[in-house]
């Protein structure tokens, strides 16, 4: 893909004076990027030389056969692999241009800024309301009665409020799988992330819930930048702006979604998107 676009290029044209005053004027619009990232667990190399970037407010889909390293890649972006025994890496991952492993970075802050949603819904063993505000409490973002406000706001945001408003104190495990996943999404959104990583977020859900989650994800841009692993090629096409095809730990191709599906550059990509490869 082409050169990084800077925020100033657009706002400068509209109002050069205001643009000068904008504190974000030098902020790169590449929210998350990797530079020649290679990664191993002990002697197993899982990722080789992955360079990519995710633009502000876009949805990036990660596709590729099972075992190609999609989950590992995703979990590296919020440093969930750091503590895996034998983890080593070379190259870098940056968040707004700064290395996530940089000396001034705080691990917990990185995780707050880069949220994650998992394949299987994983509400905590506490009430629905406490689930939504679990992260908010941990980071001391709100307290006391503010928590109720946060809970309502976030539950409304994911369209769950009407379904659960009368049972906020009850167990989340009585909700349907789709509702549980929405609850986890509300919990992730509540801490105000800038990037959301999603690892096959709908593969454990029925088609209706999948549809609900997908629609919701689309409303979350451009405020958020999403990176979604999916096995569902239809989902990748419906949802994403650009698509990355992983194969055997390598990023084979990263293109605008339409281009990648209609006109793949690499033979492997073509075989995969045409269903000729697992």
């Amino acid at each position: 893909m082409d050169e990084p676009i800077r925020a100033q290029t657009t706002s400068e044209a509209i109002d050069p004076v205001l643009a000068r005053l904008d504190p974000d004027r030098d902020r790169p619009t590449d929210v998350m990027a990797t530079d020649a990232l290679s990664l191993s667990f002990a002697s197993t190399t899982v990722l080789r030389d992955v360079t990519m970037r995710a633009r502000q407010g876009t949805i990036t889909a990660l596709i590729g056969p099972t075992g190609s390293g999609k989950s590992t890649f995703l979990r590296t972006l919020n440093r969930m692999n750091d503590k895996v025994p034998g983890f080593t890496h070379s190259g870098d991952v940056t968040l707004y241009g700064e290395s996530i492993w940089g000396p001034r970075q705080d691990l917990l802050t990185i995780r707050r800024r880069v949220g994650m949603l998992f394949q299987r819904p994983n509400p905590f063993p506490m009430s629905i309301r406490d689930n939504v505000v679990a992260g908010v409490r941990a980071h001391g973002i709100a307290r006391g009665e503010q928590l109720d406000v946060v809970a309502e706001m976030r539950l409304r945001e994911v369209g769950l409020w009407d379904a659960v408003k009368d049972r906020l104190k009850e167990s989340p495990y009585r909700l349907s799988g789709g509702q549980q996943q929405l609850l986890c999404l509300a919990r992730a959104l509540a801490v105000g992330p800038e990037v959301l990583l999603l690892d096959e977020p709908t593969s454990a859900l029925d088609p209706l819930s999948t549809d609900a989650v997908e629609r919701l994800l689309r409303t979350m841009t451009p405020a958020l930048t999403l990176i979604v692993v999916t096995h569902n090629l239809g989902q990748a096409r419906r949802l994403s702006d650009s698509t990355m095809f992983f194969f055997d730990g390598r990023l084979v191709e990263h293109e605008a979604t339409e281009t990648l599906f209609a006109n793949p550059r690499e033979a492997d990509t073509g075989r995969y998107v045409n269903g000729l490869m697992g």
Binding site: F118, R137, R187
Partner: peptide, 23 residues
Amino acid sequence: NYREGAEALGMSSGYALRRVVLR
């Protein structure tokens, strides 16, 4: 699942232990 969820939310391991795991 619980531990990963807590970790991904940015809870410290001590906080996650007290608020999620021990519970």
